[in-house]
Simulated assay, not measured.
Amino acid sequence: MAQSAAPAAIPAAPLTLPLKAIAPWAVFFGILMLALIYFVGAEQGATSLISGESVHEWVHDGRHLLGFPCH
């Protein structure tokens, strides 16, 4: 019983994506990540867009996790 009746599997070719299909999504997520880093790291001080400390309290632990000083 060394032989099998099942045919041998043909290896699949790797899927290639054109750069034009990926570029808009990469730009979108890049801008989204920059906005997130801004709100976590710099949204308390001279460049503050939102007054008060509500944003600071929401991202406080994330600031410490990423190494941003806040107090």
Rank of each mutant, 00 (worst) to 15 (best):
I10P: 03
I10R: 13
I10L: 14
P11R: 15
P11C: 15
P11L: 15
A12I: 13
A13P: 14
A13I: 15
L15E: 14
L15N: 10
T16M: 11
T16G: 07
T16R: 13
L17D: 03
P18N: 04
P18L: 04
L19D: 05
K20A: 14
K20E: 14
A21Y: 06
I22W: 09
A23G: 02
A23E: 04
A23F: 10
P24E: 07
W25N: 07
W25E: 10
W25G: 13
A26G: 00
V27G: 00
V27W: 01
V27E: 02
V27H: 00
F28D: 02
F28L: 08
F28E: 01
F28Q: 03
F29V: 07
G30S: 12
G30R: 06
I31V: 15
I31F: 12
I31M: 13
L32A: 14
M33G: 04
M33V: 07
L34H: 12
L34S: 09
A35Q: 08
L36S: 12
L36T: 07
L36Q: 09
I37M: 13
I37A: 14
F39V: 14
V40I: 14
V40Q: 01
V40L: 00
G41T: 08
E43T: 07
E43H: 05
E43R: 04
E43I: 07
E43V: 11
Q44P: 02
Q44T: 09
G45C: 12
G45V: 01
A46W: 04
A46K: 05
A46L: 08
T47M: 04
S48C: 02
S48T: 10
S48F: 00
S48L: 01
L49M: 05
I50M: 08
G52D: 05
E53F: 01
S54R: 11
V55R: 02
V55D: 01
V55E: 01
H56I: 11
H56N: 09
H56R: 05
H56P: 02
E57M: 08
E57T: 10
W58P: 00
V59P: 07
V59M: 14
V59D: 04
H60E: 15
H60F: 11
H60N: 11
H60W: 13
D61V: 09
D61L: 10
G62W: 13
G62I: 08
R63L: 06
R63P: 09
H64D: 09
H64A: 13
H64Q: 11
H64T: 11
L65E: 13
L66A: 08
L66E: 05
L66G: 04
G67D: 09
G67E: 11
G67M: 10
F68M: 08
P69K: 14
P69W: 10
P69R: 12
C70D: 15
C70K: 13
H71I: 06
